[in-house]
């Protein structure tokens, strides 16, 4: 099984973002790295200057570089950006909005976790269109994952295995709404919460996390203990979604457990030490409420 580092979903700012990827290039045992702004098109210009350096460094380190599209395009500018990305000619593109597929058909491409692939018929359609990799939606249970992976052996089936789980995307920015700002004049307040803004119940229990127009789980998915079942299901890659912790160390733990160099229980302890703020879950993969952990 391979390891993929998913795109940074939060607004980290260009310096932190660049340093993060340089370290990933140098130290993280991942096979592929998906790079690009998925959540909010307004953030993208911040990363324009450092983007080429990051891509170059990752490629030079032997990583498969995949460029991620935006998840929800409504503005003409966002549609143009998507068309340009699809036409880049150098790197594989991961579609996170069906709109992007209009530009990618008949060329090798990847389908991201925010495109709905719930069954083998949809996977087969995308495979005929040129999809080589499909990262399945995080809410899918193992049974569905297995049915899809086994029906398309020529497509790399990937599963969301670490990180706050993306649960919803909206046209409306909840960071801006909370700060009583209009979306067009948001002052990039989402940048103040580089691991998401915790949303608690009125009883003070941790529940969700807000990241601009995106809502995630507050818990952190970890499918470390599910690796044998995922491998048996035909899953070809696990996706690690960047959080505010040492992601190179997270990748190392997953790599060791996947290779049998480390037992899952011990891996879990290591993971908890790397990301002490996290409460881990695997409910979705186990066909339960996503907030559960078994």
């Amino acid at each position: 099984m391979r390891l993929t580092l998913g795109p940074v979903l939060f607004h980290w700012g260009p310096q932190v973002w660049r340093d993060f990827y340089f370290r990933i290039a140098d130290e993280a045992p991942v096979d592929a790295v998906v790079v690009g702004e998925v959540v909010c098109s307004k953030r993208a210009p911040f990363y324009g200057d450092v983007f080429p350096d990051v891509i170059e460094r990752l490629a030079a380190a032997g990583k498969d570089v995949i460029l991620a599209s935006l998840a929800l395009a409504t503005l003409p500018r966002e549609r143009r950006q998507m068309a340009e990305l699809a036409g880049n000619g150098l790197f594989m593109v991961e579609a996170n909005d069906v709109a992007c597929l209009q530009h990618l058909a008949k060329r090798p491409h990847a389908i991201g976790p925010l495109v709905n692939v719930y069954n083998e018929a949809t996977a087969a359609f995308f495979a005929r269109q040129g999809a080589r990799r499909i990262c399945l939606p995080p809410e899918l249970p193992l049974q569905s994952i297995a049915a899809i992976a086994q029906s398309e052996p020529n497509v790399l089936t990937e599963v969301f295995a670490f990180g706050n789980v993306p649960l919803a995307i909206s046209a409306r920015c909840y960071h801006a709404r909370l700060h009583k700002l209009a979306k067009d004049n948001c002052r990039f307040v989402c940048g103040n919460d580089p691991d998401g803004l915790a949303v608690d119940t009125l009883d003070g229990e941790r529940f969700l996390a807000i990241n601009g127009v995106q809502t995630l789980s507050h818990t952190c998915a970890s499918l470390l203990g599910d690796i044998p079942d995922l491998a048996a299901a035909g899953v070809g890659a696990l996706r690690l979604s960047p959080q505010l912790c040492d992601m190179a160390a997270v990748a190392l733990v997953f790599r060791d457990v996947m290779d049998g160099a480390c037992e899952a229980g011990h891996g879990h302890e290591l993971l908890a030490a790397v990301y002490p703020e996290a409460r881990f879950t695997n409910g979705f993969a186990r066909g339960m409420a996503g907030a559960e952990y078994v």
């Binding site: 929800l72 709905n116 809410e139 649960l167 995307i169 409420a289 996503g290």
Partner: peptide, 21 residues
Amino acid sequence: CVMAEGRCSLSSYATGQSPNM
């Protein structure tokens, strides 16, 4: 719906039951 329809797993995160599935 305030979220993009068909792209929301909030319900299944809390209950295991989702609009999509």
